[in-house]
Design a protein around this nucleic acid. Structure first.
Lengths: 339, 339
DNA sequence: CTGAAAGCGCTTACAG
DNA sequence: CTGAAAGCGCTTACAG
């Protein structure tokens, strides 16, 4: 394989080489390359430096720059499950784009939820002088903050700390639940079921609260018998089918898209059409699924990309934040054809 | 927020501080911390250094180390679509684990397939003195190598260069197609359809070749009329349903899981049971889908994690590689209940 | 067994 | 308008 640009001497080209070729000092090279505001450098010198840079194929050593400046351009992202769903990928994507935009680069580490790996990851990031760390979860939940995280600036992404103390960004589950229910309401449905997860979580309580709020705003009494528990997967939705049908409901808000997918199967097996016989609303806007169900699923999106992006903005002090109240990111409606 | 460990002086603790507290020179500190082989350091001095490190909460500056050693511990991963599917996430996961295992850290960049972003990403990685770059695609395809990649060691992951020239790791599509077909064969099917994608690609030709090879090995004549073209999504599989049924086949190998998912719908609508009336085999082992279809889908897995891991192994010279022939990683069968 | 010193590739006051 | 020099936090021959 070939390697980095080398000058005739055989070593990688450095600022000294550029200075030599341009006939100026390294200080001058540094000034023109970085376009230092206060730098009074003559046009000719400036031009010679640029020529030399181009001629030699010079590329600054970002690490050396960091060392001398004492401030790094790294942001660390520690994730608990990088590969389980596209969700983590979207967080990484948002964080990376935003970091980039601000001249930072992303250092990522996966921990698989393993404490030891987590500490090792954080230690490595600290040793690399990260500007700060984004500590993320692939699903919204409460976590206990690894002690080492306190050695640098950190913001929690898609999770939050027990007693607060650290800025956090999470999806607005309640607004999401409200929005989902409103979509059903807007289509004329009055008797609406909610298949909720059996797993205690911000999603479980938040989406339920949103469902109730939307109903109330529409002047509809909350009927506890219309919320059905289910495991948050296709299997859960499928199993809930008869209860849903038996409840005399015309629309159902599913805790997530996977549940909706299972319900689709159950409904179809009984000869029911969507949305004519039953309107169904999902949650998550899960890739590969939502847009390709028959009919395409109306749902509400989990803003993972935004979560990652907002995380770095907060870390860089570009967005306001609070140590006690997580920043909530809206979950927008994605209307398709199941309502 | 709090910040890095500081000593009484108020600045972050450095090797000098440790040396001072331990009553030795920084050279000595360096030697004991790195456990240098040739270093003849007394037990007492060694102990004092360790004590000082613990007492001060000293953490080495990895960047400074890199500078003085002239060799970095970074591996860059440039991906074209970090968030589209879990696939890219799995590549990142595999690469990160393997990098970690060898003392390297992963720098990731997303390009969204955008040439400018790509060049910028590579430039940034070069400036950060990466040891090498993993250039990856989220689906197996031929690419044209960005020129800048030649300035460092690079290995292609889930893609390969037109004329060779760079080591590459890709899934073994043909073996995967063969394996998928063999699963159907092993269940006693003799008349087997193949729903292939309409998109020209290594997957299209490789899986077809595998299908034919398996048939041939089983002494079954290849019948061209049994391979049906379809768009590689749920919609394509659904649309192929009548052709499949009309072909008198008892089993079908689908180009991917999404196609299989669409076919499931089509079959169900016509009252056909899986696998009793029709056996179906997928490809990809796509998360969130494959294991949760009704019945759970038998399929073949795309080895993305392994692709990422093998990529860094090749980059580090731990695995053999070739500049002309991509390394092929096996696609294992994942038997479930659709056959 | 241990330390002084040079060097890695930059940046940044400070002189002039 | 430009350069010499010190410094960032380490490592590594080289002396002793």
């Amino acid at each position: 394989m070939t390697s980095v640009e080398h000058n005739k001497g055989g070593h990688v080209v450095t600022m000294r080489d550029v200075a030599k070729v341009a006939g100026v000092s390294v200080a001058t090279v540094s000034h023109v390359i970085n376009d230092k505001p206060g730098a009074r450098i003559g046009e000719d010198a400036r031009a010679r430096v640029h020529e030399a840079v181009a001629e030699l194929g010079y590329r600054p050593n970002a690490l050396a720059k960091t060392l001398s400046q004492g401030t790094s351009r790294f942001i660390g992202l520690v994730a608990d499950a990088i590969a389980t769903t596209p969700f983590a990928g979207q967080i990484i994507h948002g964080a990376q784009d935003e970091a980039w935009k601000n001249g930072y680069v992303l250092l990522v580490a996966n921990t698989d939820g393993n404490k030891a790996a987590e500490d090792e990851a954080i230690a490595m990031m600290l040793e690399h002088q990260v500007h700060g760390i984004l500590y993320s979860s692939w699903y919204h939940r409460e976590i206990t903050v690894p002690a080492m995280l306190h050695q640098t600036d950190t913001v929690l992404v898609d999770c939050f700390a027990a007693g607060g103390g650290l800025p956090a960004v999470v999806p607005d589950e309640e607004q999401g639940g409200r929005t989902a229910t409103e979509e059903l309401l807007a289509a004329g449905h009055r008797r609406i079921a909610f298949i909720n997860t059996t797993t205690p979580s911000p999603a479980q309580s938040g989406r339920l609260a949103g469902y109730r709020a939307a109903l109330e705003a529409a002047g509809i009494d909350y009927d506890e018998s219309l919320v059905f528990p289910a495991s948050p997967e296709q299997e859960g939705g499928y199993a809930a089918t008869s209860s849903i049908i038996g409840s005399g409901v015309t629309g159902v808000f599913c805790h997530n898209d996977r549940v909706a997918m299972g319900l689709y199967d159950g409904l179809r097996e009984r000869g029911l059409r969507i949305p004519e016989d039953m309107a169904v609303m999902g949650f998550d806007n899960q890739d590969v699924i939502a847009a390709h169900l028959r009919p395409p699923l109306s749902t509400v999106a989990l803003p993972h990309y935004e979560l990652g992006a907002a995380g770095v903005r907060i870390l860089l002090g570009l967005d306001p934040s609070s140590d006690t109240l997580p920043t909530r990111i809206a979950c927008p409606a994605i209307p398709r054809h199941s309502i």
